[in-house]
Design a protein around this nucleic acid. Structure first.
Length: 177
DNA sequence: CCCGAGATTGACT
DNA sequence: GTCAATCTCGGGA
């Protein structure tokens, strides 16, 4: 991983498109290519860090490469890669193209259709078997790993979705295929 | 202290 | 298209 995660969130969010994200534990390896991300910064009304550090968002202030995993709507988990410099920035991983551990992911999701396995931030967390206990852990631990693409892909930019504040910034990034 | 909204998803009309 | 599931936080009483 040569991407500098201490850069700001929009820069990192763009660079993460095309990277392969994998999770490995005693069971097996599963993962896919990141095809959609969103950036969240500290002075961003839509960000969990906008009003400062809380017990939920404390991982956002840890070292770049830390995982920020939070519960949303009381039932789902979402996975972020912390970036910046201990200043409350992170990149939400919104969708993957599944490439490894397809059967594992099908079982976790109870879903046979490959295109629906990782087509949302909470879906991919469920498919990959990412647990909330990994919140605050680092990519260096080797459970969750990132690998850069050989060739930089074309990236499409748009507005973030599912939020009501700061809706106009173009901080959503997608693989342009 | 109580209540509404939220970086979502799946089931249902 | 509508809506419920149910945890965390912030704002108002």
């Amino acid at each position: 991983m040569n991407i500098d995660l201490s850069q700001d969130a929009p820069t990192v969010a763009r660079q993460l498109i095309g990277c392969t994200l994998t999770v490995q534990d005693a069971a097996e390896v599963r993962g896919g290519i990141i095809i959609e991300t969103e950036a969240y910064t500290a002075n961003d009304p839509a960000s969990h860090s906008f009003r400062g550090k809380t017990s939920r968002n404390s991982a956002m202030y840890m070292a770049p490469g830390t995982l920020y995993i939070y519960r949303i709507y009381g039932m789902h988990l979402c996975l972020n890669i912390v970036c910046g410099n201990h200043d409350g920035q992170a990149v939400l991983i919104r969708a993957l193209l599944p490439t490894q551990g397809l059967e594992y992911m099908r079982e976790r999701r109870r879903q046979a259709d490959i295109t629906a396995l990782c087509s949302g931030p909470a879906k991919l967390v469920q498919a990959l078997g990412v647990e909330q206990a990994l919140n605050g852990s680092n990519l260096q631990s080797g459970v969750v790993t990132l690998e850069e693409p050989i060739i930089q892909p074309q990236v499409r930019t748009s507005r973030r979705i599912g939020i009501s504040k700061a809706v106009d910034v173009l901080w959503r990034f997608e693989l342009d295929s």
